[in-house]
Simulated assay, not measured.
Amino acid sequence: MSNPLMADVAIIGAGPVGLFAAFECGMLKLTTVLIDALAEVGGQCAALYPEKPIYDIPAHPAIEAATLIENLERQIEPFAPPRLLGRIVTAITGTAGAFTITTDQNDTIAAKTIIIAAGAGAFGPNRPPLDGIAAYEATGAVQYYVKKREAFRNKRIVIAGGGDSAVDWAIALKDIAASIAIVHRRPKFRAAPEMADQLAQAAERGEIDLVIPYQLHALHGASGQLHTVEVADLDGKTRHLEADILLPFFGLAMDLGPIATWGLDLAQHHITVTPSTCETSTRGIFAIGDVATYPGKLKLILQGFAEAAMAAHAIHPIVNPGTALHFEYSTSKGVPA
Rank of each mutant, 00 (worst) to 15 (best):
Q198L: 13
Q198P: 02
L199M: 14
Q201E: 00
A203W: 06
E204I: 10
E207F: 14
E207H: 09
E207A: 13
I208H: 11
D209R: 14
L210A: 05
L210T: 13
V211F: 05
V211A: 03
V211M: 06
I212F: 09
I212H: 08
I212A: 15
P213Q: 01
P213S: 03
P213G: 07
P213M: 01
Y214T: 07
Y214N: 12
Q215R: 15
Q215Y: 12
Q215S: 15
H217G: 07
A218G: 00
A218F: 02
L219N: 00
L219T: 00
H220D: 06
H220P: 03
G221Q: 08
G221N: 04
A222C: 12
S223T: 11
S223P: 00
G224F: 03
H227S: 15
H227R: 15
T228H: 02
T228P: 02
V229M: 05
V229N: 12
E230Q: 03
D233V: 05
D233I: 04
D233C: 02
L234S: 11
L234I: 09
L234Q: 15
L234A: 15
D235C: 13
G236Y: 00
G236N: 01
G236S: 00
G236M: 03
K237S: 05
T238I: 11
R239W: 12
R239G: 05
R239S: 12
H240V: 03
L241V: 06
E242H: 10
E242V: 14
E242P: 07
E242S: 08
E242T: 13
E242I: 12
E242A: 04
A243C: 13
A243T: 11
D244H: 15
D244Q: 15
L246M: 04
L246C: 01
L246D: 02
L246K: 07
L247S: 13
F250Q: 14
G251H: 00
L252R: 02
L252C: 02
L252Y: 10
